[in-house]
Nucleic acid binder design. Structure first.
Length: 308
DNA sequence: TTCATTTGACCGAA
DNA sequence: TTCGGTCAAATGAA
C-alpha cells in the first residue's frame, strides 16, 4: 500500500512536470503517465476499500462505462472514481437506510451540474475532515429528494473528496445545456454564457471553467465573484465547507488558472488539470466541462456555433 | 426582504 | 449509548 502511494506521488510529479514542461512533449506520453496515475489511484482505492469496513464496493467496469469521461479520457485530470454502494453495505456504518446511493471519489466534488444547498456539516468520528450535507435546491419548490454528502478523504494529494449521492433528482432545473463560448483572442480568458435559471446570462471569467453548482457560491454580482476569484489572499479552499486544511491548497499553482469559487476547494488538483490548457490553447474543453454538466446533454455543436 | 450558510440540538438506527 | 443525519433558529449577504 505504501509503495503504491509512493508510486502515485512519483507519477504525479512526472505528470505535473510534463504538463508544465516548456519543451514539446508528445500527447501520447502525457496520456501514458495519466493512465499510470489512474491505475495507481484505482489500485489504492480498491485496497483502501478492502482494508476498511468494506462499505464501498468499487466497480471498475462502471468506472469505465458509466463515467462522464467514458470517451477514453475519463479520470484524466479529475481522477474521478465512480463507485456504487449497495444499500446493504451502506447500512454497515450509515444510519440512514437508502434505496440507492452512489459514491464517487473525485477531486471535483461540486461540479455535477446540479444546484445544491448545504444544510449541515458534521464532524465524523475517526475522520480529520468534517462531512458536509447538501440537498437539492429544489427540494422545497419541486420536492426533489436528491441529497449528497461530501467528505474530504485523508492523506490524498491532491485533495480528493468522497461524494455520496443519495436519491434521484426529480427537479427540472438541473444546470444543463449551458453555452460556453471561448474567447479565442484571449489566452487567459474565456466567456461563459450560461443559460440557466440561476446564473446571469453572460459571465466572463479570467479563467474559471469550473464554477459552483452550489447556489450560494454563485449568487449575486458576478463581478464580485470574479473579484473574489482573483483575490488569492481571501481565497481559501476550506471556505466552502469548512475544510480546515489550507496547506492542501497551493495557490501558487493556480495563478492564471484560478478555478472559480466552486473549484476552489479542489485546490492544486485543478491546477494540474488546467496546466495543459495554459500551455496549449487547443485544450479539450470537454474535459473541463464534463465535470460540470451532464456531458450527455451538452451539445458541442451548440458551443462551437455560438458566437460572442 | 429574501435566501443562503452556519451550527447546536434533536432524532433514530445500529 | 453512540453517532450519523437532519432540523431549524441564528446570522449574514445582497
Amino acid at each position: 500500500m505504501e509503495d503504491l502511494v509512493k508510486g502515485q506521488e512519483i507519477a504525479k510529479q512526472v505528470h505535473m512536470q510534463l504538463q508544465g514542461s516548456e519543451f514539446p512533449v508528445g500527447d501520447g506520453l502525457k496520456d501514458s503517465v495519466a493512465k499510470i496515475l489512474e491505475c495507481i489511484s484505482n489500485a489504492i482505492s480498491k485496497l483502501s476499500s478492502s482494508e476498511s469496513t468494506g462499505e464501498v464496493c468499487q466497480s471498475p467496469a462502471l468506472t469505465a462505462v458509466d463515467s462522464p469521461f467514458s470517451d477514453g479520457r475519463k479520470s484524466e485530470g479529475t481522477g474521478e472514481i465512480r463507485t456504487i454502494v449497495t444499500p446493504k453495505k451502506i447500512g454497515s456504518n450509515k444510519r440512514r437506510k437508502t434505496s440507492d446511493a452512489e459514491t464517487r471519489l473525485t477531486e471535483t466534488p461540486l461540479d455535477d451540474g446540479h444546484a445544491w444547498r448545504k444544510y449541515g456539516q458534521k464532524e465524523i468520528l475517526n475522520s480529520r475532515f468534517p462531512r458536509s450535507y447538501f440537498r437539492c435546491t429544489h427540494k422545497t419548490d419541486q420536492g426533489c429528494q436528491a441529497t449528497k454528502q461530501v467528505q474530504r478523504t485523508e492523506g490524498e494529494e491532491p485533495a480528493k473528496y468522497q461524494v455520496t449521492y443519495i436519491g434521484q433528482h426529480t427537479c427540472n432545473n438541473q444546470l444543463k445545456g449551458p453555452r460556453l463560448i471561448l474567447d479565442s483572442n484571449s489566452r487567459d480568458s474565456c466567456v461563459l454564457n450560461f443559460q440557466s435559471n440561476y446564473y446571469s446570462p453572460k459571465v466572463e471569467f479570467p479563467f474559471s471553467p469550473l464554477f459552483s453548482s452550489v447556489k450560494h457560491e454563485f449568487k449575486g454580482d458576478t463581478k464580485d465573484a470574479i473579484a473574489s476569484h482573483n483575490n488569492k489572499e481571501s481565497f481559501r479552499p476550506c471556505d466552502f465547507a469548512g475544510w480546515n486544511d489550507p496547506p492542501a491548497f497551493n495557490s501558487s499553482q493556480t495563478t492564471s488558472m484560478m478555478p472559480s469559487t466552486s473549484g476552489s476547494e479542489l485546490g492544486d488538483g485543478i491546477s494540474g488539470l488546467y496546466s495543459s490548457a495554459e500551455s496549449d490553447q487547443t485544450f479539450d474543453m470537454d474535459i473541463m466541462l464534463s465535470g460540470m454538466f451532464d456531458i450527455d446533454q451538452f451539445d458541442p455543436s451548440e458551443y462551437l456555433n455560438s458566437s460572442k
